[in-house]
């Protein structure tokens, strides 16, 4: 057994495909990005090494700063708006027995399986000032103005709404699974002691959900950092960079502004920020769990 399980050529053959994929599709592009990040390459012609010029420029680039602030805004929006609703809905859904439970759970998740391409175009129509659904809803309530939902002031909120709507089912489902894993005996005990719904929710459900909440919060922050596709189609970072995000910005710089080198420098910083954020969040939550 021992001999068989430590056969080097066999081990090598088993991990080789995984390692090849990693080297070719993850490590190689990162190395190439690091190289191009030090050049003034435009996408065509020759690349010249320019040292840390791109990175110095990046520090003073207000659009990049705006991108990071927007990610922070999204993360706060997810945590303060989407997640409380998702937890409450999950807790309410858990109380429901029978067929309705499955039906509602299914409905909440439907937007999640639809392509961002469809979602972004659909919401473009919903936000349309002339015939969009949102202004029609407002006028049904008696408001007659035509609001431009994608203007510089409103656009980031509109993006947040789309993302909360699209991702709601996912967050809800994870909380729902967490709640299902809570021992029903605890609820019975609480009900014998005469605890009402809110007391049970705050004293039993929420505290026991702590690990699940931590996972969900981590995922919310990371996805806020990585946001690109919805914004790319809905506003493409505009108007005036008010909905800019790091991934979208590096793409624009490389392929629209023909600053391929600069785009790669943004990419390198972006990767570092994502890794730091993941590691930091995991460390914070792990320490807390031990304590």
């Amino acid at each position: 057994m021992k001999k068989l399980y430590s056969n080097k050529p066999v081990i090598f053959s088993l991990v080789l495909p995984g390692i090849l994929v990693f080297l070719f599709a993850v490590l190689a592009p990162i190395c190439l990005s690091v190289y191009y990040g030090f050049t003034d390459y435009s996408g065509m012609g020759e690349a010249h090494l320019v040292g840390f010029d791109n990175y110095v420029k990046l520090v003073h680039d207000s659009a990049f700063g705006r991108s990071l602030l927007n990610s922070l805004f999204l993360a706060i929006g997810f945590i303060c708006i989407q997640h409380p609703i998702a937890i409450i809905v999950a807790a309410v859904l858990d109380k429901l027995q029978g067929k309705a439970e499955g039906v509602f759970r299914c409905i909440y998740f439907i937007p999640n399986v639809i392509s961002v391409a469809v979602i972004a175009y659909l919401w473009k129509f919903i936000y349309n000032p002339d015939f969009g659904l949102l202004n029609n809803v407002l006028s049904a309530f008696g408001y007659q103005g035509k609001i431009n939902w994608l203007s510089q002031q409103n656009a980031i909120w509109s993006v947040l709404v789309v993302l909360i709507w699209h991702g709601f089912g996912w967050g809800m489902l994870i909380y729902y699974t967490g709640i299902k894993n809570i021992d029903p005996v605890l609820y019975e005990a609480a009900s014998i002691d005469g605890a009402g719904w809110w007391t049970t929710f705050f004293r039993i459900t929420l505290p026991l959900m702590k690990p699940v909440i931590q996972i969900n919060v981590t995922m919310a922050i990371i996805s806020a950092l990585k946001q690109m596709e919805t914004v790319y189609l809905l506003t493409n970072g505009g108007p005036n960079n008010s909905t800019q995000f790091a991934a979208n910005y590096l793409y624009q710089q490389a392929f629209k502004a023909f600053k391929y080198g600069y785009g790669n420098a943004i990419g390198v910083v972006f990767i570092i920020i994502c890794i730091l954020a993941t590691v930091t969040l995991n460390t914070i939550f792990r320490d807390k769990q031990k304590a």
Partner: peptide, 9 residues
């Protein structure tokens, strides 16, 4: 690793 950072390279 953010997928979109690898788009350029």
């Amino acid at each position: 690793i953010p997928i979109h950072a690898t788009l350029l390279p």
